[in-house]
Design a protein around this nucleic acid. Structure first.
Length: 279
DNA sequence: TTGTGTTTTATTGCCTCC
DNA sequence: GGAGGCAATAAAACACAA
């Protein structure tokens, strides 16, 4: 037993059926107290109604000096009763009070306070449940955000590659529709355009796209790259080459997808890159 | 032993229901 | 209007560290 705690022990304190405060300083026995009646009434602010005074007839044996703690036996019985039903009907209150040697008012107060404690505990339990639920949802949200970031950077990367392709396309178009006057190499250049586009829009490496029916410029000694006449063009193609070197590991040329996207764009919307935009 | 924080018992005032 | 419930609060009892 805890030191100093009030307890009810018929055998422990000077014998007899006594309730006493820890150090046995105040002993109540058979309705007669060590204190004077004047002192007793002065120190008892409760039980003022006639009914309560009447109830004290069976409570007098345990007149309180001050506030008293219930015995473990009383608390045990009250707890059992509370487990059965946490609300207290008048009949049950009376029966319990007589059984425990308490005032009905005390039983009612105990139930009231017990409900308050239960409510507090219930709130704590609810909080724990909600918190674990929140933590779970939050970690899930976190992974979704990370996945979203990853996809965004992937889109940015693909967009850059698409832009590089468009620059190539623009250079090719400029050459196609604005050949240099008197330049006899434009025919072979046009031939080259076909080759490059085929290469870019095909699968890997473009090895299968050689137009066997067309003029074979390689045989004539012309370069695929016009060189000095179209330095920008060469640079653009070089850029495409280097991008192509960075293609993904699965061996698939990303340009086929990018071209398909560009195709979709050219035949579809007026707004460039509109379908890439997200908020 | 003492200071301090926590728990328990009890009161007060307000509200709702019958 | 009385009974009973609840929230807020007081205060005694208790636990415990220094």
């Amino acid at each position: 037993m805890e030191s100093g705690r009030l307890f009810f022990d018929p055998s422990a304190c000077h014998g007899g059926n006594m309730l006493y405060l820890g150090n046995c300083d105040s002993v109540f026995r058979g309705g007669t107290t060590m204190m004077s009646m004047e002192e007793t009434s002065k120190r008892r602010p409760f039980f003022s109604s006639p009914d309560e005074l009447f109830d004290e007839e069976y409570y007098d044996e345990q007149l309180p000096e001050k506030k008293r703690r219930l015995t473990t036996e009383q608390v045990h019985l009250l707890e059992k009763s509370f487990e059965a039903e946490n609300k207290l009907e008048p009949d049950r209150k009376t029966v319990l009070a007589k059984k425990l040697g308490l005032q009905p008012r005390q039983v009612a107060v105990w139930f009231q306070n017990r409900r308050a404690r239960w409510k507090t505990k219930q709130l704590e339990r609810d909080y724990d449940v909600l918190k674990s639920s929140f933590d779970s949802l939050f970690s899930n949200y976190d992974s979704i955000v990370k996945e979203n970031e990853k996809l965004k950077s992937e889109v940015v990367s693909l967009t850059e590659k698409l832009q590089a392709k468009e620059e190539v396309g623009a250079a090719i178009s400029a050459q196609k529709f604005d050949p240099l006057p008197g330049d006899t190499t434009h025919v072979s250049s046009l031939q080259f355009n076909v080759k490059v586009e085929d290469r870019l829009s095909s699968g890997s490496g473009g090895s299968a796209v050689v137009d066997e029916d067309g003029p074979q410029l390689v045989d004539s000694g012309d370069s695929y790259f016009p060189g000095d006449n179209y330095p920008g063009f060469v640079a653009a193609v070089d850029g495409v080459q280097s991008e192509e070197d960075n293609k993904s590991d699965d061996g698939r040329n990303y340009f086929s997808d990018v071209f398909a996207a560009a195709e979709h764009q050219n035949h579809g919307e007026e707004e460039p890159m509109g379908w890439w935009v997200w908020s």
